[in-house]
């Protein structure tokens, strides 16, 4: 009894319950047909959501106003630059990835420089920088669509026992990041800053450096996602990051991380990412029009947040 009660109190449980509910509803509609396949596809796409959401979660945890809006532009730039430099050559896969990481590093440092030097809220800093980054991607891309190296494409679509290899790797990364969040000085500092930045500073924590590390890490995760997504979808496209702006924030919050900062959890990201994808799949399976689908997506997201958010408010 106590184990179940403890489980029910976990902030991430809502996301998983919602994901399972949506999956069951889909399976019931199709009388169980293709339910396993849907789950496999969901894991594939949820992987990309989770990669960006890990970085976004750390940023959001830093406290009110901390959101990275430059994730889509960073994904696009990293995807474009790495694909063009690799030019389909298999031996370039690793250097290509390092280039994507370098793009993330530069973007992250640029964001932090804007926040620090201009003393502007991170939302506005990352918003303005995203314009510049997107522009750089457009200029660099010139409408070309370079195919990814065949090995990279195979790797991003490979599956073991129906589970995508990429998903397994990202589950491992999520586990590592869970330890980083809950067991390391860095992770605890991020949470402390989110709960009370002033108290954290007075306690002698290096707020500036942790903030810098967090924004850079978020940009590197976004760049990595751009790299694997471009490999997965047969090349980089200028709009490839578009849906990740809203979904990265939605996944973080539905996963049980507080938007006000100071409370975060990694498992919820997987639950929320699966939920979001399965939700869209369910509405598609029901054969609804685009309009109804969007309306229901929005309403269900809000409902989940009202339920999950309300419980957190009581807990505090």
């Amino acid at each position: 009894m106590s184990a179940i009660a403890k489980l029910a109190r976990q902030p991430w449980i809502f996301a998983f319950v919602a994901a399972v509910a949506v999956w069951l509803a889909t399976a019931a509609f199709t009388h169980g047909q293709g339910a396993g396949g849907v789950l496999s596809v969901a894991f594939t796409f949820a992987t990309f959501f989770v990669i960006v959401a890990i970085g976004q979660m750390f940023v959001v945890t830093l406290g009110p106003g901390n959101v990275d809006l430059s994730i889509p532009a960073t994904m696009t730039l990293a995807g474009t630059v790495s694909m063009k430099i690799m030019d389909g050559a298999n031996w370039m896969i690793l250097p290509g990835y390092l280039i994507a990481v370098a793009v993330g590093l530069v973007v992250g440092l640029f964001n932090v420089a804007l926040i620090r030097l201009l003393r502007i809220p991170p939302i506005i800093a990352t918003l303005s920088s995203s314009f510049v980054i997107q522009s750089a991607a457009i200029w660099y891309n010139r409408g070309l669509r370079v195919k990814p190296p065949t090995l990279l494409a195979d790797f991003t679509t490979a599956k073991i026992f129906g589970l995508p290899v990429l998903a397994i790797i990202v589950i491992l990364i999520a586990a590592v990041m869970h330890v980083v969040l809950t067991r390391t000085v860095y992770g605890r500092t991020v949470i402390a800053i989110g709960q009370n930045a002033r108290a954290a500073r007075l306690a002698g924590l290096d707020v500036g450096r942790v903030r810098l590390a967090t924004y850079v890490m978020c940009a590197v995760f976004a760049a990595s996602c751009g790299y694997v997504l471009a490999g997965f979808s047969g090349g980089a496209a200028l709009n490839m990051g578009q849906e990740y702006l809203l979904s990265s924030i939605a996944v973080v919050v539905i996963g049980g991380t507080s938007v006000a900062g100071g409370f975060a959890n990694v498992p919820g990201l997987w639950g929320a990412a699966l939920f979001l994808f399965l939700l869209v799949t369910m509405l598609n399976t029901f054969g609804l029009g685009a309009g109804v689908r969007l309306v229901l997506t929005g309403l269900i997201i809000i409902t989940v947040i009202v339920i999950a958010g309300g419980s957190r408010a009581n807990a505090r």
Binding site: A250, G291, V292, G298, L299, I301, I302
Partner: peptide, 16 residues
């Protein structure tokens, strides 16, 4: 987050 969710709703209604 709430307005993020509402952006889907408004867009869906606009399409309808």
């Amino acid at each position: 987050v709430v307005t993020l969710g509402m952006s889907f709703v408004w867009l869906g209604l606009a399409i309808l």
